[in-house]
Design a protein around this nucleic acid. Structure first.
Length: 201
DNA sequence: GTCCCGCTAC
DNA sequence: GTAGCTGGAC
């Protein structure tokens, strides 16, 4: 099984190359992790740019800005009324605990396992693997994991990979890239798939 | 299972 | 016109 996880990573990396993921830094990564929920990254970039223009990409500003104002700034990401509250919930935690634990992140209303792990890996460089809907789709089609448990699938990755945060970072990014380019939700492009020899789909 | 709801590629 | 998008709460 360890060989399998490494082989798939190797093939994806050879096919797509390095992804240069989450090029932003610091708070942008945290804000992006919330804003990107159930939307695409382009919409998030628009919102981040707006926040940057009004000089509100700081814990202090995001925490104190009015909800209505924040909603308008992040409108492009969809679900803006919910996300404005979620962002402020998270900023209130970060104001008290600049480097929160996973459990502390999960206690925030609006932060689930994927968002918490994204923050830990991409903001704080902690060796946790980020599982998402794409991971379930691809590894189900590969015949590796049929279940629906976030924790179980995450354990599979973390138990079968030797390298830590740097590889987890790149592996997750490659999975996203692959799901968007080849392993599509409907009509996947199996003919040109770099993983077709490993896939039962 | 349902609701939250903007954007764009197709 | 609408499927799909780097989820989470209820």
């Amino acid at each position: 099984m360890k060989e399998k996880f490494s082989r798939i990573y190797r093939k994806l990396f050879e096919f797509y190359g390095k992804q240069y993921w989450w090029p932003g830094e610091g708070l942008e990564i945290v804000v992006g992790a919330v804003l990107v929920q159930q939307t695409n990254w382009k919409n998030v970039e628009k919102a981040l740019e707006k926040l940057r223009v009004v000089n509100c990409l700081s814990i202090d500003c995001l925490k104190n800005i009015s909800v209505k104002e924040l909603e308008q700034l992040i409108r492009s990401t969809g679900y803006y009324n919910i996300k404005a509250k979620r962002l402020q919930n998270l900023m209130r935690l970060l104001a008290i605990k600049p480097h929160p634990s996973r459990n502390e992140l999960l206690e925030v209303n609006g932060v689930g396992p994927e968002t918490a792990d994204s923050i830990l890996l991409y903001r704080f460089n902690e060796p946790v693997f980020v599982v998402d809907a794409y991971t379930f789709r691809i590894f189900r089609r590969l015949g590796i994991y049929e279940g629906e448990s976030y924790a179980d699938l995450q354990r599979l990755f973390m138990g079968n990979l030797q390298n830590k945060s740097q590889m987890f970072n790149e592996y997750h990014a490659l999975i996203v890239r692959h799901a968007k380019n080849i392993c599509l939700k409907t009509k996947p492009k199996c003919i040109e798939c770099p993983l077709k020899d490993d896939c039962k789909y």
